[in-house]
Design a protein around this nucleic acid. Structure first.
Lengths: 301, 301
DNA sequence: ATTTTTATGTAAGTAAATTACATTTCTGTT
DNA sequence: AACAGAAATGTAATTTACTTACATAAAAAT
């Protein structure tokens, strides 16, 4: 409970002077609150306003706006606008990030993209390159790699398999618990099991991770760092998605996981050295005959 | 070829005034180039400079700086700084977005996230909510939904199935051409086939889309808008990923596709009305017993 | 060589932001 | 309830920043 709140507020701080304003609303003077409300109502416009316009809109004097800006650790109005613009550029709606029942395709389309983007931005900050490196260390020397995911993470595991087969290492993705358990029991030193789970709380999967570990495999978790699953992993790639984003179905979480897979695949590719690129090219080129070529007969649209 | 260039430069404008400046360096006047160089050398500082300071640093007059700004489609110097600040906030490196052989985990990790984020930002701008709406129109009244994907799009189709089964419509994902072809042949009015393909040039899949269409199905394409596949679709959700991002394996493209799936699923959910949320909740809650609860014994990490 | 176009700078004017100071409003005390 | 002190807000002046109009210089074309 408390943990979740903490994460949320970290996201806020990380991203956003807007959330900061929102949080401080209580502690502001009457006039300053007017300013805050006008800004929060339409921050995009605020970034393009002059101090005079904003003062008028808030029905306060210009110096009040200026004082307001300084309260938020900015040098003055122009600097404040700069911070505001940067917060907005991150694409994070500071309130109402969630889709509402009244939304139309005009409004929910950008909201979903924004939520996805902001999860990625958050994960980018939080993921430690050092830990990525550890994971790559393990993957590069694996005799065999297994990707495990259940539910929405099933396709993520499949996707990972689709990437890693290129490395000439035996790779399998399992999305059912029986196969996962059997394969985990059969593991030995040199095998790497990558367990993908958003919550890290699925009992079966926690069990299976423990089992794989006991069998001598290296277990890499792509999961929430403070989860039961994480405790059983040799390497934890911690990704906590903000609360409330995935209301009733997994959305942003699995996309972040895919991005992590991309990072790992890239890491392995680079370790393999420049000669390996031609190998990848060969695989890509193998598809050539199955495709229509780009040049001809594509004048339209 | 030309098409690609166009898309690339659009991305630049959208994402990143810095890349835009970098690309246009050649086409600038001598004085304006001086300004460009000073800005590129330290864009962060530029956002906090006044026009006078920047003019002096570039050894040109203030109006030259002003004219420079206007060349990049900004209203003037303050507006230019705003764009610059936003570009920087996105954290997208304006040159060398691509992973280089020399990169370490410190550098390739953020690069991959940035590339993913910027593809999403681009898709967000380009996707038309009206077309989304058309697709949702079709999906909401479908007797049956089929998701087709090959290769890297296979897992995307699986993921879509995993989302759409919640809507109480028969949903199937196929990732092999034989099943796809047979199912397409068996389609009739009221069936919706969602074909997912990054390039839109896989011959088999283009064939299959045409077949499904001929059978009376509505074909929704999540693919490049100017592709052979797009020509056979009833509704095209056009997503062109920037060139060079997915060098030797599909990376950002499939993530954008997943985001599109999320948007569609959200659209369908909203159409179903508020009562439907409790149905979704029921599905989510069904997992409760398979999970460790959040509260207890999670003090560490 | 001359005209035309393009590039750049100067200087003036306008707009924006900040500061100093005056006034009002609130708070707590007698 | 009246008053002193403090805090909040506004007014007006000042400073700073930005833009425009125009002039000059450089380059390109005839």
């Amino acid at each position: 409970m408390h943990q979740k709140r903490l994460i949320q507020s970290e996201i806020d701080t990380l991203n956003n002077i807007l959330t900061h304003i929102n949080d401080e609303l209580e502690n502001l003077n009457r006039s300053e609150r007017k300013v805050a409300e006008v800004i929060l109502a339409d921050p995009q416009t605020a970034t393009r306003s002059t101090i005079a316009v904003l003062a008028k809109a808030s029905q306060v004097s210009e110096p009040t706006v200026n004082r307001f800006c300084k309260k938020f650790n900015t040098a003055g109005f122009p600097d404040f606008k700069l911070h505001l613009a940067q917060a907005l550029a991150r694409g994070v709606p500071y309130v109402n990030r969630n889709v509402e029942p009244e939304d139309t395709s005009d409004s929910y389309t950008p909201k979903i993209f924004d939520a996805t983007i902001s999860s990625l931005a958050y994960a980018k900050e939080k993921l430690s390159p050092a830990v990525i490196n550890q994971a790559v260390d393990q993957l590069i020397q694996a005799k065999q790699i297994l990707f495990y995911g259940l539910g929405a993470s099933g396709p993520v595991a499949q996707d990972a398999q689709h990437k890693f087969f290129r490395f000439n290492i035996p790779v399998t993705a399992y999305d059912d618990v029986l196969m996962q358990r059997m394969a985990a029991a059969a593991c030995g030193t040199g095998d790497v099991v990558v367990v993908i789970s958003y919550t890290g709380r699925t009992k079966e999967l926690v069990d299976i991770a423990a089992l794989a570990r006991k069998s001598g495999a290296c277990v890499i978790g792509i999961t929430a760092s403070a989860s039961p699953l994480a405790k059983h992993c040799s390497v934890v790639l911690g990704v906590e998605a903000p609360e409330d984003t995935d209301v009733y179905m997994p959305m942003t979480s699995r996309i972040v996981h895919l991005a992590v897979i991309d990072v790992l695949a890239t890491g392995v590719t680079l370790r393999r050295g420049p000669g390996f690129l031609s190998h990848l090219k060969k695989i890509k080129d193998s598809l050539k005959d199955t495709r229509y070529q780009t040049e001809p007969a594509t004048r339209q649209n």
